[in-house]
Design a protein around this nucleic acid. Structure first.
Length: 267
DNA sequence: CTCGGAGCCTGTCTGC
DNA sequence: TGCAGACAGGCTCCGA
């Protein structure tokens, strides 16, 4: 489900709710999460909540025992905070963490989500550059793109060079940059790379500001839906008129995933 | 390096 | 109403 803007939104909402809270009890309801050492969380205080790529990182370190509780929501994972600790009715409840003033519930219908306890930041440090960080410059982007033969859209989905893109924002950013998703990544001109950089920053910041994109059920930990779906220009709009020019939105499949674009605005 | 396909899982929607 | 098939926002593995 969530891409960088949605994970950032969840992280911010979690930070508001969890900071300083002490974990009293953790219950796991999904055998797939058996490998997760939930017992080690008990008694720990939540020091911070950060984002590492698309992963949520909850710092539960003590001076003698550094530990980070890492959650990757993948497609359908969701974290919800309930002040009273009463769970929302959902048969996909996979984990419950009770704190002093409420409880955190983890849901995941498809069970693609991953949870782990890390002992060092090296274990969750993303390989790629975060497009919302200062490291994301035009020069770095140009370096990464150099020589790449893959089409730019599937290239954006690879997390080992840039982190955080998913299927929605990859299409949206390319539309904003006016670049055809089938173009070889390494074949973009300096001017196009500049446009891609600018579009990435612009689209992702706006999406974060809106609290992410809710197409079916994304929400932050308070159950608040995102608002960026109002601004989607191409994603999910196959056959509709382009909002900018005269074209109609086309859907095509690249490496097994849908890509949406406007053939008249994107060259 | 790059690509396509399968797999991990389950829910929803479409068409017959 | 039933049922098969396609499809879904993520990611990893394999073989060609």
């Amino acid at each position: 489900m969530p891409e960088i803007a949605e994970v950032e939104t969840v992280v911010r909402s979690l930070r508001r709710r969890l900071l300083g809270g002490r974990i009293r009890r953790v219950e796991i309801y999904d055998p797939k999460l058996r490998g997760f050492d939930a017992a080690r969380l008990k008694g720990r205080v939540i020091r911070d909540v950060q984002r590492a790529g698309k992963e949520i990182v909850i710092d539960v370190s003590t001076p003698k025992s550094p530990r980070w509780w890492c959650v990757h929501l993948r497609m359908t994972g969701a974290l919800l905070w309930r002040p009273g600790g009463i769970p929302p009715t959902d048969r996909h409840l996979r984990l419950r963490a009770a704190l002093d003033r409420g409880a955190l519930f983890y849901f995941d219908s498809r069970r693609f989500g991953v949870m782990r306890l890390c002992a060092s930041p090296d274990e969750f440090a993303p390989a790629g550059i975060d497009p919302l960080s200062r490291d994301f410059t035009i020069e770095r982007l140009a370096d990464l793109l150099r020589g790449a033969k893959t089409a730019i859209k599937p290239w954006l989905l690879r997390q080992d060079r840039l982190v955080g893109f998913g299927n929605i924002y990859a299409s949206e950013v390319l539309f904003a940059a006016g670049i055809d998703p089938r173009r070889p990544a390494g074949g973009l001109s300096a001017r196009e790379i500049k446009r891609l950089h600018r579009a990435t920053t612009h689209v992702l910041l706006k999406a974060v500001e809106c609290g992410g994109t809710t197409i079916s059920d994304f929400a932050d930990c308070d159950g608040e839906c995102g608002g960026y779906q109002r601004y989607l220009k191409v994603y999910g709009r196959e056959g509709e008129r382009c909002r900018r020019g005269d074209g109609r939105i086309i859907r095509l499949v690249q490496q097994g995933r849908s890509t949406f674009y406007c053939p008249s605005c994107q060259q």
